[in-house]
């Protein structure tokens, strides 16, 4: 029934699906539209907004007032830095667990993954105090370290599920042909693991990019990424909507583009590999 449907019914269903897609996308679309309006026009009635003058003014103001590019650069450094370090640490571990599973491998994974489920507020105070004592508050290094640690379990888990899919027979064939451990890793496994590693990278960059709990609580001005940038615009009540929209658009644009290429990875990572 579900799979075999008549052409007419299919057309109706497609239409409904598109209407819903539009409704879901509308808040994002509206934000993008508002970002091209002046403050005066942005608070006009929604119908007038569409016909009013379009301009890039808000973007210039946002850049001038709060230095978008510095926040953008902080976001790039923090999300890429934490993800790359996590990958370097996690690849050997995931590798070992996928190819040389021991009796305790599942328990080890379970414990690591369970840390990701814990609410971050439970560890906020000790980490905050430690950061203060070590002078890491409002530094990019501090944030890279925290996000790296917090995302490590997901990185390991994702890599593990990808590595698990590499058939063992290939390894045995390589070993039969006399491949050493190092050449086995370099020439046989690595090429097969690259897609999994790339997906993991993509997902975790997005997660770290969106991360707001730690970035809001551990930064003030210097190391603040885009999430803090938006939060700063969103707090004062008033006629800020065009600028707030410009700031939001700038912050989500990279994600909309990355997300386009990584929707499968997104689901897979967020479900801890339950959906492939």
């Amino acid at each position: 029934m579900a799979r075999k449907v008549s052409t007419r019914r299919k057309a109706i269903m497609t239409a409904i699906a598109w209407v819903i897609a539009f409704l879901i996308f509308f808040p994002i679309l509206w934000t993008i539209i508002l970002s091209f309006k002046s403050e005066g026009d942005a608070i006009k009635s929604p119908l007038q907004v569409l016909t009013s003058h379009w301009s890039f003014e808000s973007y210039f103001v946002v850049q001038e007032r709060s230095d978008y590019f510095r926040h953008f650069w902080n976001s790039v450094v923090i999300s890429l830095g934490s993800t790359l370090i996590a990958l370097v640490i996690a690849i050997p571990a995931a590798w070992a667990m996928a190819f040389v599973p021991g009796k305790r491998t599942k328990d080890v994974l379970m414990w690591m993954l369970s840390t990701k489920m814990m609410p971050a507020v439970g560890v906020l105070v000790p980490i905050y105090l430690m950061f203060r004592d070590w002078g890491l508050l409002d530094t990019r290094i501090g944030l890279v370290a925290v996000l790296c640690l917090m995302n490590l379990p997901i990185v390991i888990w994702m890599l593990y599920t990808y590595f698990k899919e590499i058939p063992n027979d290939i390894l045995e064939a390589a070993r039969m042909d006399g491949a050493t451990l190092s050449s086995e890793i370099l020439y046989v496994l690595t090429p097969m693991a690259v897609p999994g590693i790339a997906s993991t990278l993509l997902l975790n960059v997005i997660l770290a990019w969106n991360e707001a709990f730690w970035t809001l609580n551990l930064t003030a001005a210097k190391a603040a990424p885009l999430t803090a940038f938006i939060a700063a615009y969103s707090s004062p009540e008033g006629l800020f909507y065009a600028k707030l929209s410009a700031a939001s658009t700038l912050a989500i644009a990279p994600i909309l583009i990355l997300g386009w290429f990584s929707q499968k990875q997104l689901v897979r990572g967020l479900t801890f590999g339950a959906v492939k």
């Binding site: 996308f25 938006i230 909507y241 939001s248 989500i252 929707q263």
Partner: peptide, 21 residues
């Protein structure tokens, strides 16, 4: 992909957008 887009956004952005709506 469009259905999934909101999930790819930061909660901060979601909050800001809906604050307006």
């Amino acid at each position: 992909t469009v259905y999934l887009y909101p999930m790819a956004l930061s909660f901060i952005v979601t909050g800001t957008v809906w604050k307006w709506m």
